[in-house]
Design a protein around this nucleic acid. Structure first.
Lengths: 353, 353
DNA sequence: GTGAGCTGTGGAAGCGCTTCCACAGCTTGA
DNA sequence: TCAAGCTGTGGAAGCGCTTCCACAGCTCAC
């Protein structure tokens, strides 16, 4: 039933040349005369030949594949990054394979498999911290690495300064007169070691400290990522005897939950409660949510480009690339004509150079 | 620099057996004595040997890889489905590769590559319509196929009845007394032929017709998917001399845009404007948005399981599997104590068997 | 005791490519 | 004119596996 595969040998015979010549045509080697090339191309066309990546990979000792390691593809921020990566990789000639990681064991299983030139020539890791040993193994096996939203010694990585971002949010709220600032962020249940939420909290503390104040542990809630859990945590915070007047959420998704909690509790935003998120997802602009914007899509593009750069044998100019964060002060922190969800005042402040 | 690859031959020598025996151990063939097996396993462990999928695939004439073809990974609904797929595939022993499709040419390029046992033994297609020829090609090449949210003759597919879903939404709104019902949906710019938005509109028409009414073309707006564009379309609709009293959005994302538009225009939901979406994403429950719920994650699980079923040589029991739709009537269509975003009345109606 | 039928094993061919090496037929410079 | 050096080409080895085939050493029924 299944039709016989057309191999390079069939093409060679049809074109009246040797297999080596066909291979040269396939790999666009200059060492082929135009006439021969045309004959071979005609034969390929006629037979409907598709070279086998498997055979080619085995023969070359490496597969022309790039692997992308991502956690939690449910998170919009991860998806945006991934989109940027795919955008670039898709026109690169490399195949792209996605590996989704949700647990330590899964991470290790995938990493072990990917540290092999037969599996991939390059790996892009998004938001997953890698150990020194991991990195060394990749290097030993000659597999290139490019990190996005996670750092690594001597490995090209593109990040933002989450701590500065947290400080930015903190300064904004403090500047608006808030003294009791709550924080809602992620608890790392996976054991993978995600640190961005924690760093953003540290940034908030920096801001408070620089104003002679300190972090109030009572106003911090950490839990699994998601709008629903964030709402519950916000409910909890707002039930306190002396509730916060502002809440900084570690992501826009969580900020949405906070917003929802405020409304359910009959609080007016931003008057009774100011809310600021992180990421600047589409929902943030839709709901006029104040947020710290980070270039998600661009981080993916950048990370992918840096991998390709290495694969072409060129040095990456700037091993650690820090992308810019920006405060988008919108209606959930700044009072405006139309109210929390209105089309009021919308300020964008450039963060730092 | 790069260390030499450990091959099956090295293992064979270390264990004092032939390569065939090592291969048998790797493929857990019963034809190996326990003692020999133990010796080989020890050698594998000691040498840190990892078999090459490339070589194995080439030798077997097929790669143990499953490809997943998805459009627009930005859409939360697609991501949920994908999550379900990955959940199942990840513990299946097959490698999983993701191919993202945003245009016709990209679709064809990927399909052409994937119809090859050297690329994958099975393909899961999410939401992308396939032609009869595509399907025939897969079959001719012995590559198994499983479709999610898209149909195909004689190919296992899991879908929902979007038209019924549309009717469900329509009946709900009509039952609440609405006579001018607007629709906001997708325009298929990609040329890939996505039909769900259109089918949902047809369902709305069915509902109207069954009540002796008809679809008012003036109240229909189609545009690129997204909350922002949906808001603009809703603004447009609400500016009409005789604006709709209810809007059915083809997805929750778009419904969010509608909600935003209502608020910006000073309309109270659901009194001045009722809004219903589709999908039942997390945002829907957060914002108490009425919606037609479809089992997204489950569709992914189901689709993946059916592919695995075929790969094991078993027949899929039900080629066309229709998943259930449910009306979740929440605060954006039904008045309640707390208002549009309150924790008011929340009814769930089972749709159909 | 002998042939048939196991079980466990190794050798080697072959999967479809790439690439090294050899070589034929040229062109060039001395 | 001839050695040297191109250019274009083909043959064949080899990438790391799987699997067919052969075979040794058994057991077992007759």
């Amino acid at each position: 039933m299944e039709r016989q595969r057309v191999s390079i040998f069939d093409v060679a015979r049809a074109a009246g040349v040797g297999v080596a010549t066909v291979s040269r045509v396939l790999n666009s080697s200059p060492r082929v005369s135009p006439t021969t090339r045309a004959r071979v191309e005609a034969a390929i066309e006629e037979l409907g030949y598709h070279p086998s990546r498997l055979a080619s990979g085995l023969s070359k000792g490496r597969q022309d594949m790039i692997a992308v390691l991502v956690p939690f593809i449910t998170r919009p921020s991860v998806v945006s990054r991934l989109e940027g990566v795919i955008e670039v990789l898709d026109k690169s000639g490399y195949g792209t394979t996605l590996y989704s990681v949700a647990s330590l064991s899964q991470r290790d299983r995938h990493l072990e498999y990917l540290m092999d030139r037969h599996a991939s020539v390059g790996v892009i890791v998004i938001s997953i911290p890698l150990s020194r040993e991991h990195i060394a193994s990749f290097r030993a096996n000659g597999v290139q690495l490019s990190l996005i939203d996670t750092a690594g010694e001597d490995v090209p990585h593109v990040v933002v300064d989450d701590r500065v971002g947290g400080a930015l949010a903190g300064m904004h709220l403090i500047g608006l007169g808030h003294r009791r600032i709550g924080f809602i962020g992620d608890e790392d249940l996976s054991g993978l070691g995600f640190a961005s939420s924690y760093k953003r909290l540290t940034g908030l503390e920096d801001a408070l400290v620089s104003f002679g104040r300190s972090l109030d542990r009572e106003l911090i809630r950490l839990g699994p990522h998601g709008a629903t859990t964030a709402k519950e945590m916000a409910d909890d915070l707002l039930r306190l005897g002396n509730p916060p007047t502002a809440i900084f959420a570690a992501s826009d998704t969580q900020a949405l939950g906070v917003l929802r909690s405020a409304q359910a509790n009959g609080l007016k935003v931003p008057d009774d409660l100011a809310v600021i998120g992180f990421d600047n997802l589409e929902v943030a602009s839709i709901f006029n949510l104040s947020t710290i914007a980070q270039p998600l899509f661009e981080s993916g593009v950048e990370g992918a480009q840096r991998l390709l750069c290495q694969l072409e044998g060129r040095e990456v100019e700037q091993v650690k690339k820090v992308l810019r964060l920006e405060l988008h002060a919108r209606a959930t922190t700044i009072r405006s004509a139309v109210g929390p969800m209105g089309t009021g005042l919308q300020r964008q402040l450039s963060a730092y150079v």
